[in-house]
Design a protein around this nucleic acid. Structure first.
Length: 136
DNA sequence: GCCAACGTTGGC
DNA sequence: GCCAACGTTGGC
């Protein structure tokens, strides 16, 4: 099983929206590297949900429930979408500032490739973020 | 195939 | 609101 990080602008689609919807299609990805990551996702993989823009923080956890299929919003084009389901809200958001300040996390693509909207997360990184969210 | 111009993303 | 970083497009 792998871990991933999905970015979303909260004013467009926030984690609270996923909670409301229970599950949703993750489409609209128009970047090759991000698309390729989508295609590597397997059912049951865990996704950190990151809010860009105002929040700049990891806010929750989602789960892949449908593996890559053609993006319904890009008919005839070679783009992919997956379905994700709400899993849980973190006890507290883990901010980008904290990620940058952490020796374990500062090499995450979130920091080094800040524009990539679908990125892989290492297990140690995932666990570190969970631990940070549990601490006050 | 190179590179300038342009558009988009996202942090500050 | 600005700008850096990055990706894409199109002219040559």
């Amino acid at each position: 099983m792998k871990y991933w990080l999905l970015k979303s602008e909260p004013s467009v689609y926030a984690f609270a929206d996923l909670k409301r919807d229970k599950k949703n299609v993750w489409d609209g990805i128009r970047n090759y590297q991000a698309r390729n990551n989508l295609r590597l996702m397997k059912n049951g993989d865990i996704c950190l949900f990151y809010h860009s823009g105002e929040d700049k923080a990891v806010v929750g956890i989602a789960k892949v429930v449908k593996e890559a299929y053609p993006d319904p919003k890009a008919k005839g084009e070679d783009w992919s979408a997956v379905d994700i389901a709400y899993q849980k809200l973190l006890n507290r958001p883990v901010t980008l500032t904290e990620v940058k300040a952490s020796s374990v996390l500062k090499n995450m693509q979130l920091v080094t490739h800040s524009r990539l909207s679908v990125q892989e997360v290492k297990e140690v990184e995932f666990e570190r973020i969970i631990k940070m969210a549990e601490a006050p």
